[in-house]
Design a protein around this nucleic acid. Structure first.
Length: 592
RNA sequence: GCGCCCUUAGCUCAACCGGAUAGAGCACCUGCCUUCUAAGCAGGCGGUUGCAGGUUCGAGUCCUGCAGGGCGCGCCA
């Protein structure tokens, strides 16, 4: 079951092959000139260039061979050699009926499913998430759903930043501030067994950690004695000394509870909560192995892997595996994580959904991984994204100039969603719990759609008023459209009206079916380019096409056969819209 | 200094391998609710795609240079 676009591509490709031209040039796309055609192929232009013939002649010959295709109502050659195709109402009706019956709503799965791991969000112990985590979470979640929907076996990993020097700093700061905790930790360290009673640890909250960490980090920079002490604690923690390790577990657990609350509110979830600590034990053997492979080079007291390649425009720095002080670095952990993933899941593709600014870092780590044989060239991909900016065009800050916590941003958006709902008097008759659930969905839709409608690589401006508006190209608008159809379908069910085969009559119906048919190519494009904005764009177009259809074509009051056809169209548009929104990580309420 | 990215309508953003008349939304203007949710629909206004060259039948897209903005450049993560 293929979409019209692909079906026509095959037909045009066959015509090309008949003429001795490369069939792969025969790509059919939605027409740029809907006034002239439904679909077009520019292949004759490309073929003409390749074989040195007149493009119009080729186009005319191809058009002649397409004339017999029963799906086509008209084939014309236009301009320098465009092949314009108009499909019959019958072909559209058949395609619509097909999509309506398809549990995948017209989307084809990938030909060869792969094992894919998506590394996103990247929260840290002791630090609440802030707006910087928003994009990674939203985009990564969407990619996970997109890949999964296309048929791959996908794991999402939060890649928890839970290890390293900052943990030593924090343990020092907490034990200093709370002697009772310090005493428990010291006793356990001395005894070499985990503390029996850790009730003292319960006094440590995420807010404490969040407050203490910046202070400790600043002091660590200024005060060498303090820094040395933190390093010693770090080393002891990494050696799993009982007291430190127990306190660290408390840090990790208290942080994770808060993180999961934020992720839940955002509609983001993970299959894996692997952290840096999980690969700690792999590091020493890995370093030994890298050494045995002859990849490690001593340089300025450190041990590095050189990753520069011929043809590089500039010299890429090496991967620093072991620092001059003997400790593992950021990149070392990343490399060990690649090894760990190979040994556990053996992914054929790993996507790192991380800020664009880390592009060099990942390039270095990936090259090292390829050299080490931990992954095959090209399997690792950094999917970078731009920043979310404030109205001033600079990375988003609160009015006070601070970093906005993700939880606060979500609550801010929910509050705005409640206001918006009240403004238009919606949902007020619903039970408070349902109203609150709707406000939550409106908020998530607002944030996610605002982000995902932009190509991930570019930065965008955060504007809550605009994002939460029910008018225009927004998440709430899409929810409204979906809910409106649900209401219609409920009414149809109440009246006992049944859906039936689609028969396209009006232009608005044609356009709606053409849009439904374009779902697959939107998914393919999003998949190939790791660009969920293609799906967001499709969801919006579908909503618009439905809305036009809804305004132009009465449904329940139409005569029975027309009514049955239109009900199928409405139900299919809704199902596909919900599926597209689901890929974006956006859920739709039943009513509003 | 070297490297990467960005600059498209008043504002916020699209534009798949180079293709026809560069698209949406917001804002502004004109119509349409006794009929399925008007949070909508129909229409209008708005562009020398930062600047200057080049390649091409054809350039927002490719190449060169310039201007402006952002980011990165081994012992933080």
């Amino acid at each position: 079951m293929s979409d019209l676009k692909r079906g026509l591509s095959e037909a045009v490709g066959a015509a090309f092959a008949d003429l001795g031209l490369p069939a792969e040039l025969a790509r059919v796309t939605a027409s740029d000139r809907p006034d002239l055609a439904d679909f077009q192929s520019n292949g004759a232009l490309a073929a003409a260039k390749r074989v040195g013939k007149n493009p119009r002649e080729i186009a005319t010959a191809v058009a002649g061979r397409l004339g017999a295709d029963s799906r086509l109502a008209a084939v014309e050659v236009a301009g320098p050699g465009f092949i314009n195709m108009k499909v019959t109402d019958g072909a559209l009706s058949a395609r619509a009926t097909e999509i309506a019956a398809d549990p995948r709503l017209g989307a084809e799965p990938v030909a060869v499913p792969r094992r894919v791991l998506i590394d996103y969000a990247g929260p840290n112990v002791a630090k609440p998430m802030h707006v910087g985590h928003l994009r990674s979470s939203i985009i990564g979640e969407s990619l996970k759903r997109l890949y999964r929907f296309r048929g791959d076996t996908v794991l999402g990993d939060a890649h928890f930043g839970d290890w390293g020097y900052q943990m030593g700093l924090l343990i020092g700061a907490v034990t200093d501030e709370r002697p009772a905790i310090g005493a428990v930790v010291e006793a356990a360290n001395a005894a070499g067994v985990p503390p029996a009673d850790i009730s003292a640890f319960e006094a440590v909250s995420l807010a404490d950690l969040d407050r203490l960490y910046p202070e400790a980090a600043a002091r660590g920079k200024a005060d060498t004695d303090y820094r040395d002490r933190a390093r010693k604690i770090t080393a002891a923690l990494q050696a799993k000394q009982a007291g430190y390790y127990a306190l660290w577990e408390r840090f990790r657990d208290v942080t994770r509870v808060a993180l999961e609350r934020d992720f839940h509110a955002l509609g983001v979830d993970f299959d894996l909560w692997k952290g840096e600590s999980d690969v700690e034990d792999l590091i020493d053997p890995m370093v030994a192995e890298l050494d045995a492979k002859g990849l490690l080079i001593d340089d300025q007291g450190a041990r590095i892997i050189r990753v520069a390649r011929e043809g590089d425009k500039r010299e890429l720095p090496p991967l620093l595996v072991v620092s001059s002080e003997g400790s593992a670095m950021y990149g070392t952990t990343d490399l060990a994580t690649i090894l760990d993933r190979k040994q556990s899941f053996d992914p054929e593709r790993v996507i790192y959904c991380v800020d664009q600014r880390q592009a060099d870092h990942f390039e270095i780590v990936f090259r090292a991984a390829y050299l080490a044989g931990y992954a095959q060239e090209g399997q690792l991909e950094h999917v970078g994204f731009g920043t979310m900016n404030g109205a001033d065009g600079k990375p988003f800050k609160t009015r006070e100039g601070g970093v906005l916590k993700l939880g606060d941003m979500i609550e801010m958006t929910r509050e705005k969603a409640r206001e918006r709902l009240h403004e238009v008097g919606l949902g007020e008759s619903l039970p408070p719990a349902e109203f609150e659930a709707i406000a939550g969905k409106v908020a998530v839709a607002a944030l996610k759609f605002a982000d995902l409608q932009n190509f991930r690589g570019t930065s965008y401006v955060f504007d809550l008023d605009r994002f939460t508006s029910f008018e225009g190209k927004t998440g709430p608008y899409l929810l409204y459209q979906a809910v409106r159809v649900k209401s219609l379908l409920r009414r149809a069910a109440d009246e006992g009206v049944a859906a039936g085969p689609v028969a396209v009559i009006k232009p608005a119906e044609r356009d709606l079916v053409l849009t439904l048919d374009a779902f697959n190519s939107a998914l393919v494009e999003a998949y190939d380019r790791c660009a969920p904005n293609a799906v967001a764009e499709h969801a919006y177009r579908l909503s618009q096409a439905f809305s036009k259809f809804y305004a132009a074509c009465p449904i329940l009051s139409a005569e029975p056969a027309v009514r049955a056809s239109r009900l199928t169209l409405a139900a299919t548009a809704l199902a596909q819209l919900e599926q597209a929104l689901d890929v974006l990580g956006i859920g739709v309420p039943e009513r509003m």
